[in-house]
Every structure is written in C-alpha cells, then in structure tokens.
C-alpha cells in the first residue's frame, strides 16, 4: 500500500519547438506514515513531480500508482491523493473557513453534514479550534493560520497520501512551527510528501529525501546519507544546508575540525567541535 512513482518522465509541450523535459528517470515510494522530502533549486522539477504524483499531469514514461491502481485523479483513486499548492491561502472563496474546507469533501460526493464534519475534524487536526476558526472569514486569518486552514481543506478529503508544495514559504517563525506541527499530525493519517527549500524545518523528521537537479535525481536516500552528501549538494546549490551542519561544514573548511560525519543535532555538533578544539570538553 503506497504511492509509487516508477521511473517517470514528464515532457512539456511535446512535439513542438518548445519541448522540454521537466522530469526524467525519477522514482519515489511514499508509504502511510512516511515523511518524504523533495529538495532542489527552483526549476529542478519539484512542482512537476507533485502534479504528476497527484495525477494532474500525465507522465510520458514510467507509471504512477496509488495502492496498486494507476493514478488518474478519477475512479477509485479519486480523493486518495491530496495536493496542497504553494500559497494555498490565495484559493479561499467561501465566506467561512469551515465552508471552504468542506468544498473538497462535497466534491467527493459526501453529504453536506458529513462534509462539514470532515472539515471541522481537519481544522482541529491542524491546530485550529473549529468552534473559533470555523465560522471566521478566511481572509481574516494570520499567515500561519491561513496556511493551516488551507491544509485542512485538503486533509478534510481524508487523503491517504498528502502532497505539500512549499508549506512554510513566507511564514514567520511561529507560522513555520505551527505548520510543521500540522504536518506531523497529518502524518498520523497519511503518507506525506513535502516539496521545499526549507530543509531546516523538515529535515529532522524526514524518513527519506529526494534531491532533484535539472529534473533528474541528484540524491535519493535517508537523512544520514543526505548529511553525508550534504557538502557536495550544498556546493552545487541543490540544497540550502540547515545551520547546524552548515556550521560544521564551515569549521571544516577553515581546518578547525577534522573531516567526518555531519549532524543535525545541536548537542552532538557541539561535542564534535569541543572535542577538536583546545579548551573544549566533550559531554
């Protein structure tokens, strides 16, 4: 039971002079409860990957399967994959938050009462109390609240796989934290795929990381393998390294620290540095 992208390729404007490959040879497996990160610079094909995974874009090679069935966004896979776009708060159209969140479930054919129930439940899941936030106008919410309400609108469809495009972009620290907590909650219900530049917020809890460069996989592995490859990936501008491993990388560049593994953890990083420097003591 998983969302499986097998060796997919996507070509834009096929057969014209503008033909360009947006993705090539990309494979990915997303199981329930997983958090998979997709990193890479702008234009690396991250958003195309999301659209293909959601069945909104047909692939020119390979296959996209949802729990063993081809993904098409219709038939039995309809509603199984939820997609939250960049800045989803710009898509609100109802006068109340809960009504907007019920739009997806209603489109799946659920009765209005059931759809509203789903909406309220999803709002609670993203940390927005449905009795306070449900009746409010979507445009009156703060940045982080609006982002989470939009996330609830997709979560309300009860997708088995949830795909998020830059969920923390443009938010302040509190907003980012609240979205990360909502993503953790979503993970208890679905497999979650996050496309992001914000490695800092998500890397600590990811199960697997895919890095794209020019539409092709530049890295595919778990977090410890990513940390191993981080200096190379950072040098190629594929990944913006989180501050803690970046400090260790800088310290190595200056010869303060012998070559070795990187870590995301503040305490182990401090141990590494303290062990290598005069006057420092390990804990």
């Amino acid at each position: 039971m998983a969302l499986i992208l097998a060796d997919i390729a996507c070509v834009y404007a096929a057969g014209t002079s503008l033909e360009s490959a947006a993705l090539h040879g990309v494979s990915l497996t997303l199981s329930r409860g997983d958090l998979v990160l997709v990193l890479g610079p702008t234009g690396a094909g991250k958003t195309t990957l999301l659209r293909a995974a959601a069945g909104l874009l047909s692939v020119s090679q390979g296959s996209v399967e949802v729990d063993g069935l081809p993904a098409s966004g219709r038939g039995s896979t309809r509603g199984a994959v939820g997609l939250v776009f960049q800045r989803p708060e710009s898509q609100f159209f109802s006068l109340s938050v809960e009504d907007d969140c019920a739009f997806g479930p209603r489109n799946l054919g659920r009765a209005p009462g059931e759809a509203l129930q789903d909406a309220r439940e999803a709002l609670a899941a993203v940390g927005l109390d449905p009795s306070t936030f449900g009746p409010r106008e979507p445009w009156s919410l703060s940045g982080g609240e609006a982002r989470r309400a939009a996330l609830a609108g997709v979560l309300a469809m009860r997708p088995r796989y949830l795909l998020l495009d830059e969920p923390t972009a443009g938010l302040d620290a509190a907003g980012r934290q609240s979205v990360c907590a909502a993503v953790e909650e979503a993970r208890t219900r679905a497999g979650v795929l996050v496309v992001t530049h914000d490695a800092e917020s998500f890397l600590g809890s990811a199960d697997r990381v895919l890095v794209l460069r020019g539409g092709r996989p530049a890295f595919d592995g778990d977090v410890s393998a990513l940390l191993h490859a981080l200096p190379t990936l950072a040098a190629a501008d594929d990944v913006d390294p989180p501050e803690v491993p970046r400090t260790l990388m800088l310290a190595r560049e200056r010869g303060l620290l012998p070559p070795g593994p990187l870590t995301l953890d503040v305490e182990s990083a401090a141990d590494l540095l303290a062990g290598a420097l005069p006057g420092g003591e390990r804990r």
């Binding site: 659209r51 509603g79 997609l83 776009f85 989803p88 898509q91 997806g104 609108g153």
Partner: peptide, 9 residues
C-alpha cells in the same frame, strides 16, 4: 488546478 485537486470539475 488547485481547485481541481480539491475535486472541482
């Protein structure tokens, strides 16, 4: 596209 992803047709 976003509304389509939410099941709108």
């Amino acid at each position: 596209t976003a509304q389509q992803a939410r099941g709108a047709s």
